[in-house]
Simulated scan of single mutants.
Amino acid sequence: MAEDTSTDTAAADDLAAWGEAMAEQGVSAEPAAAAAEPPKVQPAPFAELRADQGGGAPNNQLDLVMDIPVTLSVELGRTKIQIRELLQLAQGSVVDLDRLAGEPMDVLVNGFLIARGEVVLVNDKFGIRLTDIVSPTERARRLA
């Protein structure tokens, strides 16, 4: 019987501690009191937004990201080879890629396909002329 009394005392102490903690937070410990009185609902006090506060003009928001650097790369093609084949490569070796000659190159920004294009020569440097921009829906589909 002594065990039951100590368990009841501990449970009562826990209940009292919870009641005190809830009272400090301003929450009623009585479930009946909460059910009897509906909570008071008020609109949140937000200041009215105006265009001159920096949140209105889309150009101002776009200016924030204009100076962020990204990596643009052009992919000629890909292939999978075994490490044995990789170690046998030497100067003059030819690696077959998954693209055909004349096929458009992939233009990637930070590893994501954004366009396709063809290789051009500009002042003795390689460049790429964009021939197809990937639509936002196709980009989203490729991410999934």
Rank of each mutant, 00 (worst) to 15 (best):
L100D: 12
R99I: 03
L143T: 08
G55T: 01
R84P: 02
K125Q: 15
N110L: 07
A35Y: 12
V120D: 11
S6V: 15
V120F: 06
K40G: 03
A10Y: 08
V70L: 07
L86N: 06
Q42V: 12
A33K: 09
R50E: 04
L121R: 12
I133R: 12
E103F: 07
A16I: 06
A12W: 05
I68P: 00
F126D: 03
P45T: 12
K125G: 09
G117V: 03
M1T: 09
P58V: 07
A32D: 08
L100F: 15
P69L: 03
A44T: 11
G92P: 00
D63V: 14
V109H: 04
A101D: 14
L121M: 13
A144D: 13
G55V: 03
L49P: 04
N110Y: 04
G127F: 04
R116G: 02
P45S: 14
L87C: 08
G77R: 01
Q42D: 13
R84W: 07
V27W: 08
T5I: 15
E24T: 09
P136C: 01
A44G: 13
A17H: 08
M66S: 10
V70K: 00
L62P: 01
G111W: 00
L64T: 13
R129K: 14
S28A: 13
S73L: 05
L49Q: 10
D67A: 14
A115D: 00
A34P: 02
A16M: 05
L89C: 04
G55A: 11
A144E: 11
G26C: 05
F112R: 10
A144I: 09
T71E: 04
M105W: 01
K80M: 14
Q91I: 12
P45Y: 10
F46V: 11
L100I: 12
E37V: 13
T9V: 15
S73C: 07
A90W: 05
A90N: 07
Q25E: 11
R99S: 00
R50M: 09
T7K: 11
A115C: 06
V107Q: 01
V65Y: 10
V94G: 02
P69N: 04
R99G: 02
